[in-house]
Simulated scan of single mutants.
Amino acid sequence: MTSHVSPLFAFPFRHSAPLTLGVELELMLVNRNDRDLAPRAQSLLDLTAAGPYHNQIVPEITQSMIELNSSVHQRIDTLAEELRLIGRHLVESANSLGIDLAGGGAHPFQRWQERLIFPGNRYRMLSDLYGYLAKRFTVFGQHIHIGCPDGDTAVYLIHQLGRFVPFLIVLTASSPFYQGVDTGFASARMNNVAAFPFAGHMPEVADWAGFEAYFHDMSRLGIVETMKDFYWDVRPKPEFGTVEVRICDTPLRISSAVTTTAFLQALVAWLLDERPPLDMTSLYRVYAYNRFQAARFGMEADIVDPMNARRENIGDALSDLLERLQPYAEVLGSTAQFDALRERVDQRDTDAEQLRRVYAESNDWMLLVAWQVEMLRAELDV
């Protein structure tokens, strides 16, 4: 095992095998009587503490959230199986408490004022620091870790993946409703994330030594203490030896989380193989615009290709990208996931649009959340 260490500031990046995978999924805890969020995270953690996945089930910032973490995988099929097993265990445990779990990037009608901060030291500190933003952060995301051999590769991938952040937003957008209204966004969750300092993208550092120097300066000034203080869409995780993609909403179904992960793995394989050129100045000039367009309009968004300085429909661009990545999916064993992705892109269908259709049929928030609960359960045989 090797580390890349700068002579300026010793901040080692742990070596990991390229293209290895890990996934974190944040899920809603839901009452059965009114389908509002249930502040039962501690009860669920207590119940699962002696179970087989106790180290992989953790709290989040408020008590109506729970996070499941996969172990490290090389293949998408073994990751999919583990996520299903942990998901089934969590749903069965929640059943015994009389509550449900659901996916989606934001609960459709909960009120952030009613949320309770989880009683952990870091969460109390965040609440003291960020005020009401901490409770508003009761939104739900999928984080994907992908292994890197060294810090320089991680920095390269973080900048390259910035081009594809809009695609990841669109593929996972599942939060059109927030606080009891249709926001008009495919991913309203993104607006809550954007309120935090250091949201957006990593600075234009060229390599790991440049990042170490940046972190050293920010730490010396008392602005940050750990990597967790950066809320970037894509950030390095040196203690794991990974790049962490944090832009995605939690999908409604475990299978959708798996297909997004397969897409990212193939994308990174292509980036490491082809090493396409990247102009960081051009990328970050249009970064915020593209990010907004994807979150607002989903598959109908028009974005700017920073490499060619031209506008394009994101659905069309996604179709072209899936074709380019298909050979990598075949090598990585994820053709089934790519077939599912291609079908969704061809139909311009997203979780956000499905949620809108279900609500339009019932005009009932409780029925909508009940449907979200069922979408998660349906694949888990519970």
Rank of each mutant, 00 (worst) to 15 (best):
S3P: 02
G333L: 05
D100W: 02
R111E: 14
D279C: 09
G147S: 05
F185S: 00
V369Y: 07
V258M: 02
D381V: 11
E82G: 02
A188T: 06
R310F: 10
R253L: 12
N363Q: 15
Y178M: 13
P203L: 12
H107E: 06
D305I: 08
A106S: 15
G87C: 06
V358F: 12
P7V: 13
Y156T: 12
Y214S: 07
M65L: 07
L325S: 00
L368E: 01
L171Y: 04
S3L: 11
D233R: 09
A94T: 00
E353V: 10
A41F: 03
A309D: 15
A206C: 06
T350W: 06
L90K: 04
S219Q: 15
M190F: 08
F292S: 07
L368M: 12
F338G: 04
L90R: 04
L85Q: 14
R356A: 08
L168R: 10
M280F: 05
Q42L: 11
A336K: 01
S127D: 11
N33G: 06
A186T: 03
V58E: 01
L221E: 14
H107A: 04
E353I: 09
Y284C: 05
A17V: 10
H15M: 11
G200I: 02
I314G: 03
R344I: 08
F137K: 00
Q113G: 07
Y53K: 08
V139P: 01
A188E: 05
V331L: 14
L126T: 01
R84S: 09
N313R: 15
Y284L: 11
V23D: 06
G222M: 07
T78H: 03
P12A: 09
A194P: 03
T183G: 02
A266P: 01
V268G: 03
N31A: 11
H54W: 08
N308D: 14
I117C: 06
E312M: 15
R75G: 08
A360D: 15
A49T: 10
F240Y: 15
T183N: 03
I61P: 00
A102P: 02
P12Y: 09
F140I: 01
L252W: 03
Q113E: 12
S255D: 14
Q337V: 01
Q354P: 03
L341M: 10
I254Y: 01
E81T: 15
R253F: 02
L341P: 01
D46E: 11
Y287W: 08
H143D: 02
S93R: 05
L283T: 07
W112Y: 14
E60I: 02
V243G: 00
D305V: 10
L272S: 08
Y359H: 13
P39L: 02
V258T: 04
V205E: 09
A106E: 04
V30E: 01
R220T: 14
R311V: 14
V345L: 08
T242V: 03
L116I: 13
I223L: 15
R88Q: 12
I314R: 02
D305N: 15
R275S: 14
L161E: 04
L341E: 08
F338D: 02
G98L: 13
Y156D: 06
P52L: 13
D207E: 09
S174H: 11
F11L: 08
N313D: 13
